[in-house]
């Protein structure tokens, strides 16, 4: 990479950071408990809108992994999500009713919070429907992983998005607050992912899974990206570019080995397809606040499937991380 290109990326990074600072004015703190964050605490950053039903389990799951503090941006929820979060002793909440789209789908807000509170911490940036799975997650807390990453001088940890879905039309089984969503959405596609390299930022671009198979079989180029780098030892010079798909400086995107070996990686189980999905899809189509003109949601509506069935005979039923590793969706890498 030439000096000019490298300088260009530096300018771009600064631009995202400047933009995040500018957009931070849209946030107003509802409750700020960040003073309780101690050195080396593990933090979760999350933007949400009307997710009251999902939050109890979300918090439980990540508390069990050993997250010490949650930082939420509530984008104009009307179902009491913000108030519920404000009651949690380990959460800080910011509210905004500004445009999700114009804050680059929440990334400007998150970039600012990361910049302000994430410096020197291992920071996990996820959505309320994403659950991190990493090697040995059933026997070792998240701190075991971050300590090992620290000892290995690794600064970022990749976890691809794995779309989970129920058998039968989405929405037949109602989701109760506090329930493990994997009890309903327990199926996934194990081997239909395609990978390309993005030479500008150095990240991989992964597509595939049930959404490509069912919603985008004719225009796969537009299928959603599944590559993610959600766990980063944050430094206040860093910036996420587009969602958590990639970030700058570009070295952080090198979560894959280029010489045949396997680096350690995890999976984000994406439990989007619950009964809440249909309602959400309709609403998001109205608001048009999602990526690429809410193309994804348009596609769902266009396919005329108010409650599509993503299940097929070769869908795989989720068991544990070892299954995902055997299937080749994630890897222990060098961690044993």
């Amino acid at each position: 990479m030439g000096a000019i290109q490298s300088y260009g990326l530096r300018l771009e990074r600064k631009r995202w950071r400047y933009r995040a600072m500018r957009k931070s004015r849209e946030l107003s703190p509802l409750v700020n408990r960040t003073a309780y964050i101690r050195e080396a605490d593990l933090l979760v950053f999350c933007t949400l809108r009307n997710e009251a039903k999902r939050l109890p389990y979300f918090l439980e799951y990540y508390r069990n992994l050993g997250i010490n503090h949650f930082l939420f941006v509530d984008n104009d929820s009307t179902d009491g999500s913000a108030d519920y979060l404000a009651e949690q002793p380990d959460s800080s909440v910011w509210r905004t009713n500004a445009s999700y789209k114009r804050s680059r789908f929440g990334m400007d807000w998150i970039n600012w919070l990361l910049m302000k509170y994430g410096n020197g911490h291992w920071c996990l940036t996820v959505d309320p429907d994403e659950f991190l799975i990493y090697p040995f997650c059933d026997t070792r807390p998240l701190r075991a992983l971050t300590d090992w990453l620290d000892a290995s001088s690794i600064k970022s940890f990749g976890a691809m998005l794995l779309d989970m879905y129920p058998k039968g039309p989405i929405g037949t089984q109602p989701y109760r607050a506090g329930q493990d969503p994997l009890e309903i959405a327990m199926w996934f596609d194990s081997g239909n992912y395609t990978i390309e390299r993005n030479h500008k930022y150095g990240n991989l671009w992964i597509q595939g899974g049930p959404r490509a198979r069912v919603f985008f079989p004719d225009e796969p180029y537009h299928a959603p990206a599944l590559n993610k780098v959600p766990l980063v030892k944050w430094d206040d010079r860093y910036a996420y570019i587009s969602s958590t798909h990639s970030l700058l400086p570009r070295g952080l995107n090198l979560i894959y080995d280029e010489w045949g070996g396997e680096k350690s990686s995890g999976v984000l189980l994406h439990t989007k397809f619950l009964d809440t999905f249909t309602h959400k899809a309709e609403e998001e189509l109205q608001r048009g606040e999602h990526y690429a003109g809410s193309r994804e949601y348009k596609m769902y509506a266009e396919r005329g499937q108010v409650s599509p069935d993503l299940w097929c005979t070769w869908s795989e039923k989720y068991i544990n991380w070892r299954q995902l590793e055997i299937l080749g969706l994630m890897s222990k890498g060098n961690w044993a």
Partner: peptide
């Protein structure tokens, strides 16, 4: 067990392309 971990990290599983194993052409 640890020898296997080292082998996984350096050789990887042949024919697998995934988020943390994406070899350059001819290094597969």
């Amino acid at each position: 067990i640890f020898a296997k971990a080292v082998e996984r990290r350096t050789q990887g599983r042949t024919g697998l392309y995934m988020q943390s194993r994406f070899p350059n052409p001819d290094w597969e």
